[in-house]
Design a protein around this nucleic acid. Structure first.
Lengths: 342, 342
DNA sequence: GTTAGCACTCATCTTCATGGAGTGCTAACA
DNA sequence: TGTTAGCACTCCATGAAGATGAGTGCTAAC
């Protein structure tokens, strides 16, 4: 692929991303200073189509980039972009004004990304499975000693509370004792997996069978909440700005997909872990988004993978802008998570 | 308005609700056994239009009910409806399978309502402001005594936790002492309003100014979370089934409204407190939904107002079905909330 | 290798005719 | 006096026909 072909492909992709209309040789020649006539461009376009970079709806409709075309654009042709200081300042201020608690940080991150890119934004918050157990405490819930609140804390500063029943025969004091045992045994352990050996040690320390059963349930439920990492979603309305979604059937389809939280998490997880990543159209495994592109960025802290942020939109997407933004938000998030941690 | 007019109005409303098409005299005569000719129906329709019960897009377009027409239908003409035992069983099973925690109950309630009515469902969970303070406890958060977790519990069994900073010079032990004071002073108080007198007493009991400042903040933030009652939303996709939302602009408008949580809460609150209530089209105060109807039902427990559930949809709505369902879910919710309380 | 020119292809838009569903009005009927 | 049949009229939806415009592919000339 010679340089002229690349210049033409670049112009086509950029024009199509901007206009959402199939681009023809004449328009291209007029708008971009390519130094050749429409006829030449036509020849080149025909070649590019042969090579699989462009597509044709029908004769005489202008070309649109194929997945392969976008891929080449993203990898080799896309001019590097940077957020302007104004944009950065805007984002920083947004955070400062609206995001006090860490949940708000995630939520607002999704908001910002969707607002800026006019596409769907996903933020997968750090998984607690990767977090380490810090401590567990019980609080009495009623005066009759029948329920207690278990408060579980992780080293990342996440706090969860659950109501647990105190079994017949046991007292709140027993639970307090149990907490001490659990704290001792689980301290520093990853929530993801508690080894049978540790459970055995806890059983021995606790002694009483009923009480151990209760302890097992508490630990189990604490782990459960750890497994369900939280997904924040933004841009349900923003995406309607895209002409691709001017058809209600399409909108319905996408909205239905967005309600399947598990599916979204799976998609994100399969992209996780390799910095900035772009998956274009057909490259997607899940069929429902094979006319969409997914850009993900994973944020780390001290080498540890924390979570992922993503943009999902039509393949005709401002890749450069989205990638630059994700990269910036990525750093921001790692920073914020670091701040909330200690 | 004589009986024949009423029968005709009833037929028109029912037919329009079913078909979403303006209904004409001929169709009406064919489909419903009214015992009169189309011409007579035409005359009656003209009368009903004069009286304001029907509307006309243009000559020769068939009639649709006006807000006033729907109102008369809902108040006087609508046949009473009941959920079938099958439907009830279905709902009960749904709850049993998916709703363990109280938050899930609210969420699934919204889901069920939107699924059944194919419209937007809102569930406003009990406001904590109405709940009474039960107790506050602090847990140490880190080893350096710089942060603590405040766990606040209400008599309805809601538990909230917040991270608070321990001011320079104070220790965790001070906070523990402070908790004792607050517990003593606030026990049984409504979270909605803490009188200045009580705050004064707390200040005197605590003594130290810095510590009092910290206490004030904790109480303040506990109340804050009480004020933000939670809204559960269902049916973002279900509503797309309605032909009224076959236009993307309409969809965008409604979705934008649904993102304004405060607005939705305000709408619900203004409807709160009077059992089953229907507001039709123009009767709505908020302009954005003047071509929609809102049906709300408030659930109570021991005379105390707890929350509201609602359906929002086009004025062409199955009022009977929605009202019956809301009424049933209402009882269900009160029951569930009672079960979670003690 | 590049370009101009030409024939051809679609999609879209406009216009126009047509049929169908509906109304309103009037006159006849019971 | 209330009911109905009949008729003229309105408006929407549909589809065909034609014009328009943007685009391609191919060939021949530069």
């Amino acid at each position: 692929m010679d340089e002229r072909k690349q210049r033409i492909l670049q112009a086509i992709v950029q024009d199509y991303i901007e206009s959402a209309e199939p681009v023809g040789s004449r328009t291209l020649a007029r708008k971009y200073d390519l130094g050749v006539s429409p006829a030449t461009i036509r020849n080149e376009m025909a070649d590019l189509e042969m090579l699989g970079y462009l597509e044709h709806i029908h004769t005489s409709s202008g070309r649109i980039p194929s997945s392969k075309g976008y891929r080449f654009y993203v990898d080799d042709l896309m001019p590097p972009q940077q957020l302007s200081p104004q944009e950065k300042a805007l984002i920083d201020r947004w955070y400062r004004e609206r995001a006090q608690r860490i949940e708000e940080v995630f939520r607002e991150t999704a908001q910002i990304i969707s607002q800026v890119t006019k596409n769907i934004a996903l933020v997968l918050a750090p998984q607690l499975t990767r977090a380490k157990f810090r401590c567990l405490q019980f609080l009495p819930m009623d005066d009759h000693d029948r329920r207690a609140i278990a408060v579980v804390m992780t080293d990342a500063g996440f706090v969860e509370n659950k109501v647990v029943a105190i079994p017949e025969g046991a007292t709140f004091e027993d639970f307090r004792r149990m907490a001490a045992v659990i704290n001792q045994c689980l301290a520093g352990q990853s929530l993801g997996k508690v080894s049978p050996a540790i459970m055995k040690r806890i059983r021995e320390e606790i002694g009483d069978a009923d009480l151990y059963e209760a302890a097992r349930e508490v630990i189990h439920r604490a782990l459960d909440s750890g497994k369900s990492d939280r997904l924040y979603l933004g841009g349900r309305t923003a995406m309607l700005e895209q002409p691709e979604f001017h058809d209600v059937e399409k909108v319905k389809e996408i909205l239905l997909m967005l309600e399947e939280e598990q599916l979204l998490k799976d998609i994100l997880r399969s992209h996780m872990g390799e910095g900035l990543r772009v998956t274009i159209g057909r490259e997607n495994e899940y069929r429902g988004i094979q006319d969409c592109s997914v850009i993900t960025a994973s944020y780390h802290l001290g080498g540890e993978l924390l979570g992922t942020i993503a943009v999902i939109g039509p393949t005709r997407m401002e890749y450069g802008k989205a990638m630059t933004l994700l990269d910036y938000m990525n750093g921001h998030l790692a920073e914020v998570v670091r701040k909330f941690r200690w």
